[in-house]
Simulated assay, not measured.
Amino acid sequence: MPLKSLSLQLYSVRHELDKDVPGTLARIADIGYRQVECSHKLYRNTPGLAGMLHDAGLIVPTFTSPLTDVNVADTGPIDHDAVFAAAVEVGAGTVVDTFIPEQFWSSPDDVARIAEGLNRAAVTANGYGLRVGYHNHWWELERRWNGSTALELLVDALRPEVVMEIDAYWVAVGGEDVLALLDRLGERVRFLHLKDGPISRNNLEQQPAGKGSLPIAEIIEATPQVEAGAVEFDAYAGDIFEGIAAAYAYLQPRTAS
């Protein structure tokens, strides 16, 4: 079963976007991408972003932003209405919280607080016709209580409409069997982040899908419910456009559209 669609997480090319947003979007489209995952931060800092995306022929199924007050000291107060209105403007259907730092996952009470924040955000999002999601790193898999990972405790405490965007690489770095976790989470997993490498925390060792240790083909086959896979690099030792092109070349033949 192929991926239904393929995106690029624009965080991968953040340094290029800092210099030239429309030019970077055009290069992404020239590689072949027709979808991107973009952030509220980029939207806020780039007047006219929705038009630039449209001009490049790029759609935005997923939009990212902090959604809870857990790390509010780092993000500042969250204006959910502004975030969700921006998501609607760029045409997104799901807003994903992609980063709640490791220090905020120290106990089951922490997990409950995170779930409460995401649940509140989900109620507001519903009024905009949107869903809320959460994206993992490695620490949500490393932390365990009573035999369950912190990520699975979170899922158990979330409203049923809140979905997961699973970063398969970070699952493996966190010490979990990726295929087993995906099986346990089942229909909750609606989006995937797909990068590869030697399964390490060193971001500069990350590689395009198909050039590392992850069973990418099996991951895709095991998740027919996934609406979009997204290429992402936290960092890349080579030319980032070559990296995202190599990932596209591997994943596009495994994508239905």
Rank of each mutant, 00 (worst) to 15 (best):
L3H: 06
K4C: 04
L6R: 03
S7G: 04
L8F: 07
Y11M: 11
S12A: 11
L17V: 00
V21M: 08
T24W: 10
L25C: 01
L25T: 00
G32K: 09
G32V: 02
R34N: 04
C38R: 00
Y43V: 01
T46G: 02
P47K: 12
M52Y: 06
L53V: 00
L53G: 01
A56M: 08
T64R: 05
S65W: 05
S65Q: 07
S65H: 04
L67I: 03
V70T: 14
V70P: 01
V72N: 06
T75H: 12
T75D: 15
T75K: 11
I78L: 14
D79F: 06
D79L: 06
F84M: 11
E89G: 00
V90S: 02
G91V: 08
G91W: 06
T98M: 14
P101L: 13
P101R: 15
Q103F: 08
F104A: 12
A112D: 13
R113N: 11
I114K: 10
I114G: 02
G117L: 07
L118C: 04
L118W: 04
N119K: 07
G127P: 02
Y128T: 01
R131E: 14
H135L: 09
W138P: 00
L141Y: 12
S148D: 14
E152W: 02
L153Q: 14
D156M: 10
R159C: 01
P160E: 14
E161W: 05
D167R: 02
V171N: 05
V173G: 04
G174M: 08
L179A: 09
R188D: 12
K195V: 08
K195C: 10
G197K: 10
G197Q: 11
S200N: 09
Q207P: 00
G210P: 01
P215N: 09
T223G: 02
Q225K: 11
D234S: 10
A237W: 03
G243S: 11
Y248C: 06
A249W: 02
R254G: 02
A256M: 13
